[in-house]
Amino acid sequence: MHRRQLSHRGADSGGEFLFNKLCAEFLGTCWLVLGGCGSAVLASAFPQVGIGLLGVSFAFGLTVLTMAYTVGGISGGYFNPAVSLGLAVAGRVPASSLLSYVIAKVAGAIIAAAVLYVIATGKAEFQLGSFAANGYGEHSPGGYSLTAALVTEVVMTFFFLIIILGSTHDRVPAGFAPIAIGLALTLIHLVSIPVTNTSVNPARSTGQALFVGGWALSQLWLFWIASLFGAAIAGIVWKSVGEEFRPVD
């Protein structure tokens, strides 16, 4: 996440450089799905050297960290429709281009899921399985209920946005935000993979669900509603607490 971009209000209002920003968000979301979901599908249980839950968690965090430093100066480095909504609610970015950003991110996730599907099916006797899709109930890795999944996704997205908004504030030293945000996403996955396979990102959920179909598509609504709701609440809280805070002289 690039601090200057996140705090530069109205940067997209005239449409200037919007195409460049949408391309950056498309690429960033592609990388997030390829690195995060790719590690889960291809490497998590690979014979003898499987990276497991810990490895997948770090893979997601590293995708955000590396691509935020790469394209954060162009687009802000969001890679997540929920993050865009939370920033808009907090007044950090204009709401006028929100839909364009959401479309770019979802498109990036779908393209990455398609690439991952092509790679995964190149293995003999490939079985699709969950394909790193998000789910609850019988499709939760740990068998957690719809309520548990809903609470997990709302709370984890809320704190993810609080960390993003805080670490990218003008009062915080520049250049360190991607580290804090990448580690936050790693921690979120360490906690919530057993519950939902971890979403906190509707685009990431959509790309995988389209290839799994069936149950994944029927449960996709939760991962949109929960993430967007958690992000919006975080934006409201931060706008009233974090943005209005002024240090005592």
Score class of each variant (00 low, 15 high):
6 L>F: 01
67 M>T: 14
18 L>H: 11
46 F>M: 09
61 G>M: 05
40 A>P: 01
210 L>A: 11
203 A>M: 11
105 K>F: 05
128 L>V: 01
63 T>S: 15
162 I>A: 08
149 A>R: 10
159 F>I: 06
44 S>P: 04
129 G>Y: 02
186 T>V: 03
108 G>H: 01
114 A>N: 09
30 C>E: 05
223 F>P: 12
131 F>L: 00
28 G>A: 03
13 S>T: 12
75 S>E: 02
54 L>Q: 06
217 L>N: 07
199 S>L: 11
203 A>T: 08
39 S>H: 01
224 W>A: 03
137 G>N: 12
150 L>F: 15
34 L>P: 07
130 S>H: 09
143 G>C: 00
7 S>T: 14
104 A>F: 03
248 V>P: 11
22 L>W: 05
29 T>D: 13
232 A>F: 08
75 S>W: 09
52 G>S: 11
56 V>Y: 00
147 T>V: 14
182 G>I: 03
16 E>V: 10
84 S>Q: 07
7 S>D: 14
19 F>V: 15
92 R>T: 00
59 A>C: 09
52 G>I: 07
223 F>D: 06
37 C>S: 15
189 H>V: 02
103 I>T: 07
32 L>F: 15
65 L>A: 07
173 P>C: 08
204 R>H: 14
4 R>P: 00
215 W>D: 04
184 A>T: 14
185 L>Q: 04
137 G>M: 11
224 W>K: 06
235 G>N: 06
212 V>C: 00
144 Y>T: 11
39 S>F: 03
84 S>P: 06
210 L>D: 09
86 G>D: 03
74 I>V: 15
208 Q>D: 12
165 L>P: 12
115 V>E: 07
114 A>K: 07
244 E>Y: 07
99 L>M: 12
151 V>W: 12
20 N>S: 13
39 S>Y: 02
193 I>Y: 05
98 L>N: 08
241 V>Y: 13
190 L>T: 03
130 S>N: 13
153 E>V: 13
3 R>I: 00
155 V>F: 12
78 Y>D: 15
176 F>Q: 08
10 G>S: 05
197 N>D: 01
224 W>Y: 15
213 G>S: 02
12 D>V: 04
179 I>E: 07
172 V>G: 02
35 G>S: 11
67 M>A: 03
207 G>P: 10
184 A>F: 00
225 I>M: 10
66 T>Y: 04
120 A>S: 13
86 G>C: 04
